[in-house]
């Protein structure tokens, strides 16, 4: 996997904006951002109502993902380009879903919505109409998703990368100050995890750092990428960005995203927790 296969820049998107085989999809933490305006011909996926099971804590299942993409007018042979706010946190999370359900032709817009806005590129309020499709998803690819038992087994044995802010990692905060809604019972981090905040992967404008800078970052933080790796955060969206960096940009095999993340781990009975900084 190389950078050009998984990441496109804004010029590429502008050149393909009317290409019917390319579907541009906006995914935001603030799900109302799309209503204000969006890239021309972009459809919206709501990370909460579209991608989560409405009752239990889990993803939409395979049939649910098929129904969602069919309704959005996304076909199996379409190239999907994801972008969003918050430096592509939720777009990365959606990217991981597309890969989980076997959609190969999916890419991220480098820099997401912020870079597009800072470049003063065109945003519209017109909502495109796409004919529905009959999308077929594959079974979930378990090789990129970690569960709680995988995390416990990885303590001291594999790389655990905690991508939250230093204050969340050390146990000072349960959640970023602007996101108070989902919390764990206990603060802290998984023992042996390295704290490498997601923001270290990105430039100020939201674009990803170069491959060399990224390799240096993980080497400096003593992450031996020859070992298996699990990334986690609070609910799995910031760590999807780190998963994208390691698995998709740097081509590291066996990197999993733990979507249960701290809201699950920090509420488990009996598992070890560490406080403090690295």
């Amino acid at each position: 996997m190389s950078r050009s296969e998984v990441l496109v820049d804004a010029d590429w998107v502008e050149a393909h904006i009317d290409d019917p085989t390319v579907v541009i999809v906006e995914v935001d933490e603030d799900t109302s951002a799309y209503e204000k305006n969006h890239i021309k011909n972009a459809v919206r996926i709501d990370w909460k109502t579209d991608l989560q099971d409405p009752v239990r804590r889990d993803f939409v299942d395979q049939a649910g993902f098929e129904a969602l993409l069919s309704a959005k007018g996304i076909a199996n042979d379409n190239t999907v380009v994801l972008y969003g706010g918050n430096n592509n946190w939720f777009a990365s999370y959606a990217y991981w879903y597309f890969k989980l359900y076997g959609h190969d032709a999916v890419k991220l817009l480098d820099g997401g919505r912020k870079k597009w806005e800072l470049d003063a590129r065109e945003l519209v309020d017109e909502v495109p109409v796409r004919a529905t499709t009959s999308y077929h998803a594959k079974a979930q690819d378990a090789s990129i998703r970690a569960f709680r038992d995988d995390v416990v087994a990885a303590i001291g044995a594999q790389n655990l990368v905690d991508v939250r802010s230093p204050d969340e990692f050390s146990g000072k905060l349960l959640a970023p100050a602007h996101l108070p809604q989902e919390q764990s019972q206990r603060p802290g981090h998984v023992p042996s995890a390295r704290n490498i905040p997601w923001s270290k992967n990105a430039n100020d404008d939201g674009t990803f750092k170069s491959d060399d800078e990224l390799k240096e970052l993980y080497a400096d933080e003593q992450v031996d990428l020859a070992k298996d790796t699990i990334a986690y955060c609070r609910i799995g969206e910031r760590s999807a960005l780190t998963w994208f960096v390691l698995h998709e940009l740097l081509g590291v095999h066996n990197v999993k995203n733990y979507d249960g993340s701290w809201t699950e781990y920090g509420s488990l009975v009996g598992v070890p927790i560490e406080l403090g900084t690295n």
């Binding site: 912020k114 806005e117 802010s165 602007h178 100020d204």
Partner: peptide
Amino acid sequence: VSGYVRLLDGGGEFTAEVP
């Protein structure tokens, strides 16, 4: 002006960002 504001801590590390 519409844009973004980032909050960086004393060590220059990213803490938060809002539009």
